[in-house]
Every structure is written in C-alpha cells, then in structure tokens.
Amino acid sequence: MADASKVPAADQVLRILSHLATQRGPVPAASIATALGLPRSTTYHLLGVLQERGFVVHLPEERRYGLGVAAFELSSGFSRQQPLTRLGRPLVAALVDRLGESGHLAVLHGRDVLYLVEERAPRRPSLVSDVGVRLPAHLTASGRAMLQALPPAQLRALYPDRAAFADLPSTTDAAPWSYSRLKTLLAEARAAGVAGEHGEVTRGLASVGAPVLDHLGWPAAAIAVTFAEGAPDELVDAASAAVVDAAATLSRRIGAR
C-alpha cells in the first residue's frame, strides 16, 4: 500500500472529501483549510479540480463548498455493491455455527434498523428480523448498539420527543419511552461494550449486539445474536464476546482504524 506522504495530492483530496462528508452543510474554503492544516492556495486549487469532476459543488452566493453529485454516485455505487452484506455474511454465519444461535447484520435507517443478513440456527424459534425487515432501533440490540455510538446531537435529532418512540405489539415492556430513558440505556450499553434487549422485540427471546464502526468512528452497522430469554450466563457471555469480536473484524474490513 502506498504511503500517503508519497502521494500528498491524493491524500489531501481524500481528506477534503472526508471532511465535507462529516459537515452538516456546505462550508467555506477557509474553514476547510484551517481544519485540515492545508495552505489556502492548495485548498482552493484542489476544490477547483473536485468541482470540475463533480465531486464538489460551489455555492458562490454563500462562498461555501459542499459535496457534489459525483460523491453521491460513489455512495450509490457502494450501496449497489453491498460490501457490508458481502463482508458481513460469512462473519455472521461463523457466529451461528460457533454459538448455535441465530445471528443478524443490520444498518441504521433513520429511527429504524434494516436487516441485511439473517442466519438462522437449526431448531431455533422463528424470528421477525428477516432480511429487509425494519424495526424500531431503540427496541433492538442492533439498534441500541448503533445508537450508543452516535454523537449526542445526532441522537437527540433522531428522538426529539416522545412521539419519536415507536412500539411493537409483542413487547413485554410497558414502561413509557423518553429521551432520558434511552440515554440511560445507551450509557449502560456503552459501558458494557455490548447492547442487549430482553423480550422487547419478541416475547421469550433476547439479543446482544455490537456496533460496526467506519473510518470516521460512525456506526455503519451492527452484528447481533438472538437466544432464549433466561439462557445460561455462559451462553450470554460467549455471545457477547463473539458479537464484539465479529463487529471489530468487520469494522477493520471496511476501513476502520
């Protein structure tokens, strides 16, 4: 692999694109230069090239730069190629073989989780979390694993009030949901290194999940395992360690540092 110091222009272009991708909206060139420690002349030159190629759009009235259509096309290509599914499926399958329990890979989509991979263990109960199914993120182990990795401002934007908390008819949890309750639950998951749920999706079943982080430290997905409520501590501990290990492996495979 080439050292970034040997191809500085390429490294600088990628840093600019990565920086723009983390902003809430277009930003001035001067702020890009300052944030990345680049000379202003270099920053303007690279932005001009990116603009010509469609990766950056310039808003002259606002004197700001944002991501262009070509950057969106890269994102669409990423989705079409389904690298998370391709890279994650063998890891989830290995989890199922090792533990004898069903495993899943899901991504966060708004306030829902969307299941991309579902590996069913033999002679285990059927699950609602099939491929393509969406469930409220705050009720699932996968969702909680990803939510606990979000910045506080992003989490608050997803759950501005009580109306944001959807429920499921099958849940055994009668307590009302609130942002403060969610924050407490996510803090516990963060401290434990693994998120869990107990009968909140399907009565009699529990799950543990861990986040898959991208190169910016954002939750790209989560890997989880589902088993019977009241399972032996040995199984719960083994499942927790296994999902953390699988999530860390997938994180590395998608470029996490």
Results as ranks from 00 to 15, higher is better:
90 P>I: 08
108 L>P: 08
185 L>E: 14
100 G>L: 06
254 I>W: 11
57 V>L: 14
230 G>Q: 05
234 E>R: 13
241 A>C: 05
64 R>G: 06
87 L>W: 11
167 D>H: 14
189 A>W: 04
37 G>T: 09
55 F>P: 05
127 L>R: 13
30 A>S: 12
132 G>P: 10
57 V>S: 14
26 P>T: 15
78 F>W: 15
256 A>Q: 12
44 Y>G: 01
27 V>I: 13
80 R>C: 08
205 L>I: 15
238 A>P: 01
147 L>Y: 04
9 A>E: 15
146 M>S: 03
140 T>C: 00
46 L>D: 08
250 L>T: 04
238 A>F: 08
142 S>E: 13
87 L>E: 10
193 G>I: 07
236 V>K: 10
84 L>V: 08
199 G>T: 02
64 R>Y: 06
43 T>Y: 14
82 Q>L: 12
69 V>N: 10
155 L>M: 03
130 D>I: 12
121 A>R: 07
239 A>F: 11
106 A>N: 02
152 P>R: 00
208 V>F: 04
25 G>F: 09
220 A>L: 06
33 A>C: 11
72 F>T: 12
95 L>Y: 07
121 A>G: 08
175 A>R: 15
228 A>F: 11
76 S>P: 04
80 R>H: 12
44 Y>E: 12
44 Y>L: 13
170 S>D: 13
191 A>N: 09
31 S>K: 11
25 G>M: 08
128 V>F: 10
45 H>I: 03
194 V>R: 00
143 G>K: 01
106 A>Q: 03
187 A>G: 12
101 E>N: 04
35 A>R: 10
126 S>F: 11
92 V>F: 05
235 L>W: 12
202 T>W: 00
201 V>R: 01
56 V>S: 08
213 L>S: 05
107 V>K: 02
147 L>K: 02
144 R>T: 00
23 Q>F: 06
191 A>C: 07
110 G>C: 07
152 P>T: 02
256 A>L: 13
79 S>T: 14
37 G>C: 03
58 H>W: 11
157 A>N: 07
118 E>W: 12
246 A>D: 03
36 L>W: 09
55 F>M: 08
136 P>H: 02
194 V>A: 02
110 G>N: 03
192 A>G: 06
195 A>Y: 02
198 H>T: 10
127 L>H: 10
5 S>P: 03
127 L>P: 01
57 V>W: 10
171 T>R: 00
74 L>P: 03
96 V>P: 01
127 L>N: 06
184 T>R: 15
48 G>F: 08
6 K>S: 15
163 A>T: 13
200 E>T: 00
227 F>E: 01
196 G>Q: 02
100 G>M: 09
64 R>L: 09
243 V>Y: 06
67 L>A: 07
102 S>P: 04
78 F>E: 12
221 A>W: 05
79 S>H: 15
186 L>R: 01
123 R>S: 14
250 L>A: 07
124 R>Y: 08
